[in-house]
Amino acid sequence: MQGNRQDMAVLQEAVARIDRRHASFMPGIRFDGDPANGLIRFGIPAMDAVFKDGFPVRALHEVRCSLTRDIGAATGFLAGLLAGCMQERQGRIAWIRDPACHLDGGQLFPAGVSMFGLDPARLLVVHPADLKTALWAVDEAAKCKDLAGAILHVKGNPAHFDMTATRRLMLKAQHNGLFVCVLRQGGEEEASAAATRWHVKAAPSGADPDLENGIGLLRLGLVLERNRNGRTGQWTIAWNQQRREFEHAPTDIVDRAAASSDRPDRAPQMGQVMAFKRAS
C-alpha cells in the first residue's frame, strides 16, 4: 500500500511534468502575462486594472448594444479591439452575420473599418441563410487554427444560441487560440460562457480643437458587465485616430462607481427598452 502510494506520487509528478511541457507549446493556455500567450493590455490604467494578467485574447467575448442605432458604436469598438488584438497575429478573421441583422443594421463599410487599423482584406465575410447555419459556421470557424478570429453578429437574443452553444465556442476558442466574439445587436443581457461582456453606447464627443462646432474624438460609453477573471467596470473611452488606440476620456460627469464585482450585480431593469422611440 505504501509502495503504491509512492508510485502514485511519482506518476502524478511525471504527468504534471509532461503536462507542463506540452502546455508551453500549446497556444491559449496562459502561464504568464505576455502577449505571446494571448494577453494584451489596453494602455488605459483604469481598464487594465480589472484584468489581472491582461485581457485574454484567446477566448470568447461578447460586445452588445441595447439599441439598433448603437450598432455603429459597438462595431467601432469591436473593430478597434480587433485591430489591437490582431497586430501580433497573422491570419484571417471570419465575420459571420445572422441574416436578421442585415435588415435594419446595414452592413460593414470596409473604408470605415480600415480607419480603425483593421485591413478589410483580412475579413472573410460569411452570409449564412439562417441563424442555424450561422451558428454552425461560427462553430466551424472556431475550429480553424489558421484563423485569427471569428465574429458572430446576431440580432437580439436568439433561442438557439444558449449557454451550451457559448460554452462550446469558449472551449474551441481557448483550444485553438482564437479571438471569438459575439456582436449582439439590440439584445438583452444574457447568461453566457463568455470571458467578458461589454455594453457599448455612443457618448457625446468632446469639442474639436480645430473646428467650431466640429466633432472631436469619438467617445464611447463602455460598461464591462461581466469579467470572468476580475472586477467589472464602467468607463468612457475615446478613439485616438492618430495613435490608432483607445484612450481614457474622462467626461465632465464623474464616472459612476463600478458595478459590483460579485455577480449577480445589477438590479433588473423594469420594463423593456424598445429599439426605437415612437414619434407619434
Binding site: L108, F109, G112
Partner: peptide
C-alpha cells in the same frame, strides 16, 4: 486625423 467614413453603411 479625421474618422471620415462610418463603420456601418446602409445598402
Amino acid at each position: 486625423v479625421v474618422l471620415s467614413r462610418p463603420v456601418v453603411l446602409f445598402d
